[in-house]
Simulated scan of single mutants.
Amino acid sequence: MPSAWSPLRLALTAFFTADGFVFAGWVVRVPAIKEQVHASPGALGLALLCISAGAVATMAVVGRLCVRHGTRPVTVASALLLSLVVALPAHAHSVATLGAALLLFGAGYGALNVAMNSAAVEVGAALRRPIMPTFHAAYSLGGLCGAGLGGLLASRLTPAWHLGLIALVGLAVTATAGTVLLRSPAPGRPQPQDAQGARPAAPRGGDRGRRVGLLVVLLGLTALCTSYGEGALADWATLHLTDDLHTGAGLAAAGYAAYAFAMTTGRLTGTWLSMRLGPTRVMAGGGLLACAGMLTAALAPSVPLVLGGFVLVGLGLANTFPLAIARAGTLAGPQGVATASTLGYGGMLIGPPVIGFLANAFGLPLALTTVAALAAVAAAIAVSTDRRPAAHPGS
C-alpha cells in the first residue's frame, strides 16, 4: 500500500494541477481571442463546441487504452498532447481555424482527464480513502493560479505569448512529474464494488453488469449536470462581467479566480466532509448551494453580488464531480471512469456553446440561469442514486 503522500500521489497531483492551470490559461484569454477572430456569441459558441467534440471523441478510446497499456503511460502521453496544442487557439484568425485548434485542444483535455482520473481511482483504492476530492482540489488550485496569472498578464502579453508560456509550463510538468509517475510502483487496480461501496461476494452475471452499468450512467449524469456549470463559468463568467457589468479584463479574470478559489477550498475539505456526512449529502447539498449561487451571479445587478454568487457556485459544485467519477471508477475501473467522464466532461464542454446559443437568443444573464437548474437536477439524481439497491443484496 502506498503512503499517504507517496511520490506517485504527488506526481499525479502535479498533473491535476497542470491540467487546471492550462485550462484556466485558455479561459482568461477567451475575450481577447473572441475579438481576434471577430466572433459573435453564437459563432464563439459553435467554435467552443469543437472542444466538446474533440474530448468526447477521445474519452472512450482512452478508457480502452488505459485498460490495455495502464493508466500512467496514457496520462503522460495525454499531458504531452495537451501541452503542445494549448497555444494553437491564439494563432487563429477566423472562427473556422479557431474551431480546428479547439478540436485538438479538446482531444488532449479529454484524454488527460480520463487517464489521470483512472490513475487516481487506483491510488485511492490502494489507500482505502476517498481522496479523489484532493486531486480535484489540485486541479482547482491550478485553475486559480492560471486565472490569477492571466489577470496579471491580460493587459501585458498578447494571447500568443501568454498561451505559449502556458504550453512551456505544461511541458515542464509533464517531463518532471511524468518521470516520477512512470517509475513509481503500481498501486494495483481497484476491485469492483457495489453501489454502497462494499465488495460483492460473487458476481451475478448479466444482472449485476446491468445494474453497475446503470449506476455508472447515473453517476455520469450527475457529473454532467454539475460540470455543465463548470464549463459555462469557465468560458462565460469573464464575458458576463465585461459585457453585462462593464468591468475591465483584470476584474473579470478576478471573478473567475474567486470561483476557482472557492472550488479549491471546497475540494480541500471534500474528503473530510464525505467521510462525516456521506457522499450523497455532500453532492445533494452542494447542488442546492450552487443553484442559489448561480441565480445570484446571473441576475444580480452589482459586481460584489455577482462575485459572491460565483463563490457559492464554486463551493457548491466542488465535490459532486470528483465523488461521482470516483464511484464510477470503483464500480467499473477505467471503463467506468471513461463512461462517466464522457458524460461528465461532456457537460463541462457543451455548457459553453449552449450558453452561447442561448445568450444570442435571450441574453447572457438568462442563459446562465440554466446552470442553476441543472445544479438542482444533479442534487435530485444524487439522492435517487443513493436509494437504488446494491448490486448484490447480500453485500
Rank of each mutant, 00 (worst) to 15 (best):
W5Y: 14
L10H: 04
A11M: 10
L12G: 01
D19E: 10
F23K: 03
F23T: 12
I33M: 12
E35F: 07
S40K: 07
S40D: 11
L44F: 15
L44P: 11
G45L: 09
A47Y: 00
V56D: 05
C66K: 06
R72C: 07
V76G: 08
V76L: 11
T97C: 05
G99H: 04
A100Q: 02
A107I: 04
A107W: 02
G108Y: 02
E122N: 14
S140A: 12
L152E: 09
S155V: 11
L157R: 06
L157H: 12
A172E: 13
A172R: 07
A177H: 00
G178F: 00
V180H: 13
R183S: 14
R183T: 05
A195Q: 10
Q196M: 07
G206E: 15
R208A: 14
L214K: 06
V217M: 05
T222I: 14
L224Q: 03
S227D: 15
H246C: 08
T247E: 08
T247Q: 09
G248H: 08
A249Y: 06
A254K: 09
A262T: 13
G266F: 03
L268Q: 14
T269S: 15
T269E: 13
G270V: 03
G278H: 12
T280Y: 12
R281T: 13
G287W: 00
L299K: 08
V303Q: 09
N319Y: 13
R327D: 04
A332H: 13
I350E: 09
G351P: 09
P352W: 10
P353R: 08
T369K: 04
A380I: 11
R388A: 12
